[in-house]
């Protein structure tokens, strides 16, 4: 008798082998991603609890004050803080890539048929769902605290806030692909707060010195903030606002795409 192992006929798997549909992008994975996020207290605090608390702390004392067009200052503060919540939500969801790279999960994924583009699509979708939740929560707190607006203003301001946060999911991905790091949001949290201040989310920019105001108009949050509040204030959306939003969107998205390509070609 010879050794048996070499003569054992190779029995191939009887499974029907095929690559995954949509490169591995699936709603079921999104659901698990959402569960992960809802389990993360820090994310919930920074994207939902903090903006709500800020609103109650700084908004409520201004109850009854009105904007030049007769709408409530409270609504202005609510939309601004919704932009803040959504930007933190989308940035942190995108930046989760850095953590997953640090943990070696990205390497593990390279041993599955999941396409890198499907992975990024999952991250963007997760970021946008979390961003939407952040906007809805802030708006709900606002409505409960007495913000009254016509339905179309709620809708348009909400949509602008939410879609504007796409810019920050791109920023999150850019940071995520910049380098593997386990706690990138510890660094990004303060950076986002600073950008939000220059974007006029925590106070009107008119309260800043004139030179700073001019500089602020070139920072990445300003455009999205202006866009989100336009349905409320009725201010016309200037070319500068569009240039700011599209410009930063392009910078972040192209940067993220470049780093992403570098990462996937590293083989």
């Amino acid at each position: 008798m010879t050794t048996s192992t070499l003569t054992t006929p190779a029995i191939a798997s009887t499974m029907d082998r095929r690559p995954p549909a949509l490169g591995g992008f699936s709603p079921a994975v999104l659901l698990i991603e959402m569960r992960r996020i809802l389990r993360n207290r820090r994310t919930l605090i920074f994207t939902m609890v903090m903006p709500a608390v800020f609103f109650l702390l700084f908004g409520l004392p201004q109850r009854g004050e009105l904007l030049p067009n007769g709408r409530q200052v409270l609504a202005w503060i609510m939309v601004s803080l919704a932009v803040y919540g959504a930007m933190v939500a989308t940035t942190s969801a995108g930046a989760a890539v850095a953590t997953e790279r640090a943990l070696g999960w990205s390497r593990q994924l390279r041993l599955t048929p999941l396409r890198p583009a499907a992975y990024v699509a999952t991250k963007v979708a997760t970021a946008m769902i979390l961003g939407l939740v952040a906007v809805v929560v802030e708006f709900a707190v606002g409505a409960a605290a007495g913000v009254r607006l016509p339905a179309y203003v709620w809708l348009l301001a909400g949509l602008a806030t939410w879609l504007g946060s796409l810019v920050f999911s791109a920023l999150g991905l850019l940071i995520g692909y910049l380098g593997p790091a386990e706690n990138v949001m510890q660094f990004m949290g303060p950076v986002l707060a600073l950008l939000a201040m220059f974007g006029g989310l925590f106070m009107p920019l008119e309260m800043l010195p004139h030179a700073l105001q001019r500089i602020a108009e070139f920072t990445p949050v300003w455009g999205v903030g202006q866009l989100a509040r336009a349905p409320l204030t009725g201010d016309p959306v200037s070319v500068g606002v569009f240039a700011n939003v599209l410009g930063w969107a392009a910078v972040f998205a192209l940067g993220a795409a470049w780093l992403f390509r570098r990462d996937t070609q590293r083989v």
Binding site: P20, V29, R36, R39, N40, E100, G104, L111
Partner: peptide, 28 residues
């Protein structure tokens, strides 16, 4: 398929979630 030396797991998922999620990355 491979079993690597270390790393490659998400600490905030449960064991079953990790397997379910990975299963979605394959066709069958």
């Amino acid at each position: 398929a491979a079993v690597m030396q270390s790393g490659g797991l998400l600490k905030d998922l449960t064991v079953a979630e990790t397997v379910r999620m990975t299963a979605h990355f394959f066709g069958r």
